[in-house]
């Protein structure tokens, strides 16, 4: 599996556009800046919704209204974030594929998606009974808290990708090598 991912990453790395994007100082930095700045739209709004459920923000505004009205700008933010994220991966595919932090981030993104699905399902089922309460019921609050924690760690992992502490070319220990998916005899990093 790791060898397959590595070969796939090398294949992407060999494409001209990947090299061009990686080596373009302004283009790469603009893409990365957009990825980071979109935090303010996507995760910022998501956290407002989560904080509402926990009773720390907009306690006197109906929860369903906050969630529904802020959903669209939040999703626009996430779409831009995913597009720029894919571009960043495309620009540095091999190192990113073998980054421990990138792998943790991907797992957490799946967890975030599952949590968001369950959160919305539970909310839609019960919101009529607590819509005007300053704090949501415990089940909803748990989902909101998980969302805050997961996304905070996603941001953290995203930030850590930039650091080379556990890169495959730094001869990591067996555990890190396993998690990062380092391939014996690999020539590209």
């Amino acid at each position: 599996m790791n060898e397959l991912l590595y070969n796939l990453a090398v294949m992407i790395d060999d494409t001209q556009w990947s090299t061009l994007l990686h080596e373009s100082y302004y283009m790469y930095n603009w893409v990365e800046s957009t990825h980071v700045l979109t935090l303010m739209v996507s995760i910022g709004i998501l956290f407002l919704i989560d904080l509402r459920m926990l009773g720390y923000a907009f306690p006197d505004v109906p929860a369903s209204k906050i969630a529904a009205r802020l959903n669209t700008p939040m999703l626009i933010g996430f779409v831009v974030m995913f597009i720029t994220g894919i571009l960043l991966f495309y620009a540095v595919p091999v190192r990113t594929t073998q980054s421990v932090w990138f792998r943790i981030k991907m797992v957490l993104l799946v967890a975030c998606a599952v949590n968001a699905f369950l959160f919305h399902k539970r909310m839609n089922e019960s919101v009529a009974s607590w819509d005007n309460e300053p704090r949501a019921p415990k089940r909803i609050r748990t989902g909101a808290m998980l969302s805050l924690v997961f996304w905070s760690v996603v941001v953290m992992c995203g930030r850590f990708i930039a650091y080379d502490w556990f890169d495959c070319d730094r001869d990591p220990n067996a555990l890190i090598s396993f998690v990062a998916g380092c391939v014996d005899g690999q020539t590209r990093y």
């Binding site: 739209v41 995760i43 956290f47 802020l70 941001v155």
Partner: peptide, 18 residues
């Protein structure tokens, strides 16, 4: 701390956008 700074930036951005 950089990551916490980024999370703070996100929350500030959310408040500004809202």
């Amino acid at each position: 701390v950089q990551a916490v700074h980024l999370v703070g930036l996100g929350v500030l951005g959310g408040a500004v956008i809202a």
